[in-house]
Amino acid sequence: MTIACTEINSLDGDCIFISPCSSNSFRACLYDGVEDDLIYFIYPAKNASTFDKFVYSMRNGTMVPFAGEIAEDNFWAPNGRVRNLTWLFPSE
């Protein structure tokens, strides 16, 4: 079986949010502060005491730290373990 891959450089106005336990995509124009053609990531860092938060641009292939402020306290469960990193989106 042969699998064909197609390179894309745009999400056609959509954005994607990815974490280890949750992912979602939607039209960026539906929400203030969200830009199109970007992929937002949150992952535990290698030392597992902090989190990597970054955004990748489909337009120019660059990756920069995530600009949104998310309190790190929101990532930890009461027992000191990492919570399931889940994006929360308003219902449509």
Rank of each mutant, 00 (worst) to 15 (best):
E72D: 11
E69D: 14
A71F: 06
N60K: 08
P78N: 11
S23G: 03
S10W: 08
S19Y: 03
F17V: 01
I42L: 02
P65S: 09
M58V: 07
R27N: 08
L38S: 03
F89H: 12
F89K: 11
D14V: 07
E72S: 02
A77S: 14
C15D: 00
Y43S: 01
L88T: 14
Y43Q: 00
E7A: 14
C29K: 14
L85K: 02
A67M: 05
F54D: 02
V82C: 15
L88W: 11
M58Y: 04
G13L: 07
E72H: 01
I70R: 05
I8E: 03
Y40E: 05
D37Y: 11
Y40H: 14
T62Y: 03
L85Y: 02
W87A: 10
I16T: 14
I8A: 05
I16K: 08
A71C: 13
C21S: 12
R59K: 09
W87L: 13
Y56T: 00
E35D: 13
C15F: 06
N24A: 06
T2M: 09
L11Q: 07
N24L: 05
S25R: 10
S23M: 04
D32F: 10
W87I: 12
G68H: 07
L11V: 12
G13N: 10
A28S: 05
G68W: 02
W76K: 10
I70T: 07
N47T: 04
G33D: 09
G61M: 01
E35R: 15
L11M: 15
S49M: 11
S25I: 02
D52P: 00
K53V: 03
L30D: 15
A71G: 09
F66N: 00
S57H: 08
N9G: 14
F75N: 00
P78R: 11
S23R: 02
E7Q: 15
S10G: 09
N74Y: 07
L85W: 02
